[in-house]
């Protein structure tokens, strides 16, 4: 096994978003909020979204977790806020998350990265 292409948790983007996310918090009156647990470690993550007329107007996340789950959640929420359009956000998939993170992940850590996406998908199921 070689170092090439292996996971690097100490990249600036992971550190910034994983530790000092600008999107961390809870919303006052979210349209939806979902909480999910990572089956691997039991860490939990909550995503809050406020939607007005098919547009996301605010979103954030909360919960404690590893760098990867926190960074992925932060980057995903950032992307949601950038895209805004609900129909486009519904198309987010695993690739979206991997691209945002920009580092390759080992098998076991993929779960951590996808926790926020799973929360988002669950949110879409309950959006009125």
């Amino acid at each position: 096994m070689t170092e090439e292409g292996t996971m690097d948790l100490t990249q600036e983007i992971i550190l910034q978003h994983g530790r000092l996310s600008p999107y961390k918090g809870k919303l006052e009156n979210p349209t939806v909020k979902v909480k999910l647990e990572n089956p691997l470690c039991g860490d939990s993550l909550r995503v809050d979204i406020r939607i007005v007329k098919d547009q996301v107007v605010d979103a954030c996340f909360s919960g404690e977790g590893c760098l990867i789950s926190q960074a992925a959640a932060s980057l995903l929420v950032g992307e949601i806020l950038r895209v805004k359009n609900l129909n486009k956000i519904k198309k987010f998939n695993e690739e979206t998350v991997f691209k945002l993170l920009g580092i390759s992940l080992t098998l076991s850590r993929t779960q951590c990265a996808l926790l926020s996406l799973r929360a988002l998908k669950k949110a879409f199921k309950i959006i009125p």
């Binding site: 170092e3 292996t6 996971m7 690097d8 948790l9 100490t10 691997l40 470690c41 039991g42 860490d43 977790g65 590893c66 760098l67 990867i68 080992t106 850590r109 951590c112």
Partner: peptide
């Protein structure tokens, strides 16, 4: 520092350890 991050970073140095609950929650 989250145990999973410690384990991932140790793995980069070739050091294999366990992280999590070790089947004893």
């Amino acid at each position: 520092i989250h145990p999973h991050d410690v384990a991932s970073l140790l793995d980069k140095d070739g050091i294999a350890v366990r992280a999590g609950f070790h089947c004893a929650m």
